[in-house]
Amino acid sequence: MYYNPYYVYPNQYPMWMTANHTSLTQLPIHLAMPTNNTPFPPVDTHKLKSSAKSIQVIMQQALLLSTKIAESDQFAHDLMNAAQLSNKAEVDKLVASTGITIKFETKFTPGVIQIRFSESDCCGLTMILDW
């Protein structure tokens, strides 16, 4: 059944509220939602496609970091140790040493590290790694 939000259904309100109303009422047509005038601008995919191309570059940069962590026990140990000691400068230095060339921001707690990669104002990617 189709639900019409502008139609007052008989059991929509408690009986004491509808006691004086003997029939169902419908809102006037001018209060209904517009059907052909949309409040949104016309669809333009140029910026979306540009963001999609930029995110591919960011994903390649994130892959550099994740590959280094996965393949190097020493790097993974150093990164985790620096994060657990709250040594942000060392964490940032280690992340940058993987060859990442785009802007990134690191945040960490004793149980997780979060690296946010971003490319200008178009898009970003957040990598969250638990330990």
Rank of each mutant, 00 (worst) to 15 (best):
Met1Ala: 10
Tyr2His: 12
Tyr2Arg: 08
Tyr3Phe: 08
Asn4Gln: 01
Tyr6Phe: 13
Tyr7Met: 06
Val8Arg: 07
Pro10Thr: 00
Pro10His: 13
Pro10Ile: 03
Asn11His: 12
Asn11Phe: 09
Gln12Ala: 06
Tyr13Ala: 11
Tyr13Gln: 09
Tyr13Met: 10
Tyr13Pro: 02
Pro14Glu: 14
Met15Cys: 02
Met15Lys: 15
Trp16Arg: 05
Met17Ser: 12
Met17Ala: 14
Thr18Gln: 12
Thr18Gly: 05
Thr18Asn: 04
Thr18Phe: 04
Asn20Arg: 10
His21Val: 10
His21Trp: 13
His21Thr: 12
Leu24Trp: 11
Thr25Leu: 15
Thr25Met: 15
Leu27Asp: 03
Leu27Ser: 11
Leu27Tyr: 01
Leu27Pro: 03
Pro28Phe: 12
Pro28Met: 15
Ile29Asp: 12
His30Asp: 14
Ala32Cys: 08
Met33Glu: 14
Met33Pro: 13
Met33His: 14
Asn36His: 15
Asn37Trp: 06
Thr38Arg: 13
Pro39Ala: 08
Val43Gln: 11
Thr45His: 07
Thr45Ile: 08
Thr45Arg: 07
Thr45Glu: 01
His46Gln: 11
Leu48Tyr: 13
Ser51Arg: 06
Lys53Glu: 05
Gln56Thr: 09
Val57Cys: 00
Val57Trp: 01
Val57Tyr: 01
Ile58Pro: 04
Met59His: 11
Gln61Trp: 00
Leu63Trp: 01
Leu63Cys: 04
Leu63Phe: 03
Ser66Trp: 00
Thr67Phe: 10
Lys68Pro: 04
Ile69Pro: 07
Ile69Gln: 06
Ile69Val: 14
Ala70Asp: 13
Glu71Ile: 04
Glu71Gln: 09
Glu71Tyr: 02
Ser72Asp: 14
Asp73His: 04
Phe75Thr: 06
Ala76Gly: 01
Ala76His: 04
His77Ile: 01
Met80Cys: 13
Asn81Met: 05
Asn81His: 11
Asn81Gly: 04
Asn81Tyr: 08
Ala83Gly: 09
Ala83His: 06
Gln84Trp: 04
Gln84Leu: 07
Leu85Phe: 02
Leu85Thr: 10
Ser86Lys: 14
Asn87Cys: 02
Lys88Thr: 14
Glu90Pro: 05
Glu90Ala: 12
Glu90Leu: 15
Val91Glu: 01
Asp92Thr: 14
Asp92His: 09
Ser97Thr: 07
Thr98Val: 07
Gly99Glu: 01
Thr101Trp: 01
Thr101Ala: 15
Ile102Met: 03
Ile102Pro: 00
Lys103Arg: 14
Glu105Trp: 00
Thr106Asp: 07
Lys107Gly: 09
Lys107His: 08
Phe108Cys: 02
Pro110Trp: 06
Gly111Asn: 15
Val112Phe: 05
Ile113Gly: 00
Ile115Gln: 02
Ile115Leu: 05
Ile115Phe: 05
Ile115Met: 01
Phe117Thr: 02
Ser118Phe: 05
Ser118Ala: 12
Ser118Asp: 02
Glu119Lys: 14
Ser120Trp: 03
Ser120Lys: 11
Ser120Asp: 10
Asp121Phe: 06
Cys122Glu: 14
Cys123Leu: 03
Gly124Tyr: 09
Leu125Glu: 04
Thr126Glu: 06
Thr126Ala: 11
Met127Glu: 06
Ile128Ser: 10
Ile128Gln: 12
Ile128Phe: 02
Ile128Thr: 15
Ile128Cys: 04
Leu129Thr: 10
Asp130Val: 02
